[in-house]
Design a protein around this nucleic acid. Structure first.
Lengths: 136, 136
DNA sequence: TTACTATGATACAAAAAAAGTGTCAAGTAT
DNA sequence: ATACTTGACACTTTTTTTGTATCATAGTAA
């Protein structure tokens, strides 16, 4: 339970690499892939996800590549994770309203809701600016 | 991310059903399975997990079945979930110490650790006694 | 225009995990 | 003995994850 998938891990590695670049620097997926040790084609798909959501901007053709879509301080870890893994949902019941008819399950329901909001707020509190800092 | 599997859901339904029984009452898996709408063979495996950990006691043969291994107030939701899903680990890095060599990842590390402990404490705070209460 | 480069979209394939079944052994009651 | 019920374990099916391949699209440069 609660595991971040490899995709989510790669997504973080990749976008943190972008966040570490000088502002305005455009980098290739191939470079990011090599630097982070992730398959290039897989990472490319992840970055396309980011691009659709505006987390990164992309440019095609010679000299093309990716850069952050906004300031690192304006991109949260939650946005990154949800971009590739979908919304934080600890239990299927939270997905569809009214789908949970079982008494026993409904007592559990508020617990999952609490977990959901706790985790969301923890991830909301961390930005790419934080993550891009070198460890001392 | 963060989804409880069906197995975890079944586990909760099943053991909550046990918690709702009169103290000392032994019930068959088949009964629990039918009442909770879970495949009997699948639920049986889940209950065997519980039995190994002492969350439930089991009796074989005619008149056999399952009952809670201790008071509902002494069984936490965390114990139930971990019994079938394994320990709460939001990121693979937390599994093996020293497996995380990547700078970018290591900045993320403490965040997952925080999530882990938050979720654990939320689940620790809920017991089967709470869950067995009828909803008003 | 033509060639080259890099992302975008989408379909496909392989691997891993989850979900579920089946068989037989072991213990218990009548 | 016989019927009943859990225990252990191997096996199958389904779903999800992970990754690859192909071609389209757009931009750059000669």
């Amino acid at each position: 339970m609660m595991e971040l998938t490899r995709k989510g891990e790669y997504a973080i590695r990749g976008i943190v690499y972008l966040a570490k670049q000088p502002a305005g620097k455009v980098v290739l997926v191939s470079e990011v892939a090599e630097a982070t040790g992730v398959s290039q084609t897989f990472l490319a798909k992840i970055f396309q996800n980011f691009a659709k959501l505006g987390l990164v901007n992309s440019f095609r053709g010679t000299g093309g590549g990716f850069l952050l879509g906004r300031l690192p301080s304006r991109i949260t870890l939650r946005q990154v994770v949800e971009a590739v893994e979908g919304p934080i949902i600890p239990n299927r019941c939270l997905t569809e309203e009214g789908a949970c008819t079982r008494e026993s399950l409904c007592m559990v329901h508020p617990v999952w809701r609490k977990i959901q909001s706790e985790v969301a707020s923890i991830l909301d509190a961390v930005t790419l600016e934080d993550l891009a800092k070198e460890k001392k």
